[in-house]
Design a protein around this nucleic acid. Structure first.
Length: 424
DNA sequence: AACAAACACAACCGCCTTACG
DNA sequence: TCGTAAGGCGGTTGTGTTTGT
């Protein structure tokens, strides 16, 4: 669509806002709210387009904006977030209350980039410049250099190819051989498995007879997406697979469980608080070797579990604890359980070390960031539409109709999960 | 003091996505 | 299903201020 339609209208002012314009806009929104932005300029008596009004409000007039220079903590957090999210300024801004994406973007381009370079850190890759130069050298003739551009916005930073991997997986559902191509970047993700739609439907149908009640607290048998939530036998066994089985793990041949370090948590609880913590000595680590930099479910946190101590499922019978495995092993490489990922962990934490001259073992900001990102993923997963399946069965639909519902849900949820990963 | 360069910040542009008729 | 309006986002440009010569 391009330019906003109202921008084509004549007699619209451009450029800096005058105090009078600010006052008009402020008064209008204070009294009436912004409503539809396209109507705001007319109602407020401004010769501006709605888009301009919106921007002025968001970036300057909004009362909850924090004024003044960025603190060192904020800058550090921006750097950390950028390492994870790339140039997704709006997402970075959501984690810095009172700061706008525009403000952060300007700070990054005018100040932080320079500081990082002075410290010998490539602002695009967050790795030492010398290392980046070595890697770029062989392909410098055909690829963009780190100096000439930022991280590809579509990349989403260090984790950027996750969504691409998932979407590719959706198109090549048979246990994602395609991930092998990206193995270096997403080593752990290569163990993720997504069932084909046919397998999904087949398993759903075969388990239908065992489904006593959609609202029961018991497990829902034959939930095919189990395969998405866990890892291959090879991985699970190799990296300290647990003896604690997932309840819907009926397909042992294709998917064994890995360490389940969290007590079950209900989706409603997860959507508001995760109870995710870093363990100093991590008694729940599953015996995987890494003692620090792991996360565990704080069972002392009353909001982290509504039925702690029990094994199994939440009210929907939907096993969520494996989510931590995805995060620990795929989303957050520094929490990877495999011993050989220690080097990766150190690499991810290089920048604060270089920036401050001291190695910060477990920066609180990283913990907060991880928890926050974790919440995003859990929330997204929480939307996984088991209720839709349950509703379909509860409506006494014909098997063919069940299949159609399940087929639709498969498409939608796979897409949603891909998007969810893209949002982190 | 005058000028230019560098800097910081505000605003715009163009594209994409979503909602809706 | 399609077209349009609107919101949102990231990249880029414009403008005012500061700093160095």
């Amino acid at each position: 669509m391009g330019k906003h339609s109202c921008c084509y209208k004549q007699k619209l002012r451009k450029g800096l806002w005058s105090p009078e314009e600010d006052e008009k806009l402020m008064n209008h929104i204070t009294k009436h709210g912004h409503g539809c932005w396209s109507t705001v300029p007319k109602l407020a008596g401004l010769q501006r387009c709605g888009k301009s009004c919106r921007l002025r409000w968001i970036n300057y007039l909004r009362p909850d904006l924090k004024r003044g220079a960025f603190s060192q903590e904020e800058e550090d957090l921006i750097i950390e977030l950028h390492a994870v999210l790339g140039n997704r300024w709006s997402q970075i801004a959501t984690r810095l209350p009172g700061r706008t994406d525009n403000e952060i973007k300007n700070l990054w381009n005018s100040s932080i980039k320079k500081k990082l370079r002075q410290k010998g850190i490539d602002p695009n890759t967050h790795k030492p410049l010398a290392e980046v130069d070595r890697k770029i050298a062989p392909t410098i003739s055909t690829e963009r250099t780190s100096e000439s551009s930022d991280i590809d916005p579509s990349s989403g930073g260090a984790l950027g190819n996750l969504s691409h991997l998932l979407s590719e997986t959706a198109q090549s559902p048979e246990l994602l051989p395609v991930l092998g191509k990206h193995r270096k970047e997403t080593t752990s993700l290569a163990h993720l498995r997504v069932p084909s739609k046919e397998l999904f439907l087949d398993q759903l149908v075969s388990g239908n007879d065992n489904l006593p009640s959609c609202r029961s607290t018991g497990p829902i048998p034959n939930f095919p997406f189990q395969q998405l939530m866990c890892y291959s036998n090879e991985f699970g066994g190799k990296h300290g697979g647990s003896t604690n089985p997932l309840w819907f793990n009926q397909n042992e041949s294709s998917c064994s469980t890995i360490s389940t370090v969290m007590p079950p948590v209900s989706p409603s609880t997860l959507s508001t608080s995760t109870g995710l913590n870093r363990s100093p000595d991590n008694p729940h680590s599953g015996g995987t070797g890494i003692q620090s930099n792991q996360f565990y479910w704080d069972t002392t946190n009353p909001s982290s579990s509504s039925n702690k101590g029990s094994s199994g499922s939440n009210s929907l019978g939907f096993e969520l604890q494996s989510t931590s495995s995805i995060l620990e092993n795929s989303i957050f490489p520094w929490t990877d359980l495999s011993p050989d990922k220690n080097s990766h962990l150190e690499e991810e934490l290089k920048w604060p070390d270089l920036l401050h001259g001291t190695f910060t073992d477990t920066p609180a900001t990283i913990q907060n960031l991880s928890q926050s990102l974790y919440e995003d993923v859990v929330k997204a997963e929480n939307q996984f539409n088991m209720e839709g399946l349950c509703a379909a069965w509860s409506q006494n639909l014909q098997p063919q109709q069940h299949l159609q519902v399940a087929s639709d849900l498969y498409d939608k949820d796979l897409q949603r999960m891909s998007l969810s990963f893209e949002n982190i």
